[in-house]
């Protein structure tokens, strides 16, 4: 399976409004399209910069308060840029019972960042998410596009190490469940 390029410049620069124009054009005057507009803008730019939100409000015909209101209501939208790999530690019930708190604690311990923060080298951003629906493999954590299941705190160091070098993950396919 071909992997998407995970290099840090995979997102458009917020000064380049080209991608945004295409997105706004695509939705035209479609009723209730604000959420998909923001989702695609985030996919293109990696996060929702103030500039992007202002442009969406102006060009797609929304109040800025409406755009900001929606962007801050839903968990998926980010107002800050993310690192090369987004780490999502699942905190669904099954993962909680299986020790997700310790998984997050150990990622924090290894990377020296808190939840919601990005490492100084721009490599990793840490997030907690509510249930990815793969409860049978609890506790799980997603790094970039790879899912790592049946984790233990002691395995975190090894998992992260695979992503630390340049040029993408080494042997980090999501099949390292025991």
């Amino acid at each position: 399976m071909e992997k998407e390029c995970a290099c840090s410049n995979r997102f458009a620069d917020v000064d380049d409004l080209g991608p945004l124009e295409e997105i706004i054009e695509h939705y035209g005057s479609e009723k209730g399209a604000l959420i998909p507009l923001l989702q695609e803008a985030q996919d293109a730019y990696g996060y929702l910069d103030e500039k992007i939100m202002r442009e969406i409000a102006k060009r797609a015909g929304y109040q800025l308060s409406q755009v900001f209101g929606v962007a801050t209501f839903f968990a998926q939208f980010r107002l800050k840029p993310i690192g090369e790999y987004l780490i999502k530690v699942c905190h669904g019930t099954a993962c909680h019972v299986a020790g997700a708190t310790q998984i997050t604690d150990e990622v924090i311990n290894q990377l020296g960042i808190e939840e919601g923060e990005t490492t100084p080298d721009n490599k990793f951003t840490l997030e907690s998410v509510m249930c990815l629906g793969a409860c049978a493999l609890a506790p799980i954590m997603v790094v970039g596009d790879d899912t790592h299941g049946k984790l233990k705190p002691t395995k975190i160091k090894k998992v992260l190490k695979a992503y630390a070098g340049p040029g993408g993950p080494e042997g980090a396919e999501g099949d390292d469940a025991e």
């Binding site: 959420i35 989702q39 209501f73 839903f74 998926q76």
Partner: peptide, 24 residues
């Protein structure tokens, strides 16, 4: 319609608000 991550949107009226492009 792709959700944007809000548990409350499982509630019918909140879900409809979200489909209409508002805070859920």
């Amino acid at each position: 319609k792709k959700g944007a991550g809000a548990f409350v949107c499982g509630e019918e009226t909140a879900m409809m608000a979200s489909i209409e492009g508002q805070r859920g």
